[in-house]
Every structure is written in structure tokens, then in C-alpha cells.
């Protein structure tokens, strides 16, 4: 067994995290495909989940950018 290096760059850490997430995602997908009545159901539900998540992420990004803009504007209009 070779231990993974502990002192790594932030980039490498994020790549390692992504790789772990990917493995978990593939495992989850495999379980879903095994348990579902057919690949059609899996695809249909995955599409729905992706649509909902895309809308969610989009809304979240929009709200964050709106709040940032407001904060900047309020800083700009403050007393000198």
C-alpha cells in the first residue's frame, strides 16, 4: 500500500476531491441502474434532477451576484 501524499497544493486537493466525487457518482448511478425498472426511467429522472439542479444553481448564482452588486453600490454611496 502506498499512502497518498498529505502536503499537496490546493489544485491537487480539489482534483483529488473531484475524483472521489466522480467515483461516488458512478457508484450511485450503477446502483440506480441496477434497481430501476429500466434505463429509460433512470435517464428520465436524471434529466429532471439535472434540470432542477441547474435552475437551483442558476438562481443561487443570480442571488449572490445581486447581493454583491447591492453591497458594492451601498459602499459607493456611503459618507465620505
Amino acid at each position: 500500500m502506498v499512502g497518498l501524499p498529505r502536503d499537496i497544493s490546493p489544485g491537487a486537493r480539489s482534483r483529488r476531491g473531484f475524483f472521489a466525487d466522480l467515483l461516488i457518482a458512478i457508484a450511485l448511478a450503477a446502483v440506480a441502474i441496477l434497481l430501476a425498472a429500466g434505463i429509460g426511467v433512470v435517464g428520465f429522472l436524471a434529466l429532471l434532477v439535472l434540470l432542477v439542479l441547474s435552475v437551483w444553481i442558476g438562481l443561487e448564482a443570480a442571488v449572490v451576484s445581486l447581493m454583491r452588486r447591492r453591497r458594492r453600490r451601498s459602499v459607493g454611496l456611503g459618507p465620505r
Binding site: D21, L22, I24, A25, I26, L28, A29, A32, I33, I39, G40, V42, G43, F44, L45, A46, L47, V49, L50, L53
Partner: peptide
Amino acid sequence: MLAALACLVAAATSYV
């Protein structure tokens, strides 16, 4: 999200 994408890729191999 990644799991949903993986499912979609698997479904695409039949759908396409």
C-alpha cells in the same frame, strides 16, 4: 449532480 450526469450518460448509450 455528478451522479445524475453519470445516469444521463448511461441512458444516452441506449437513447441515441
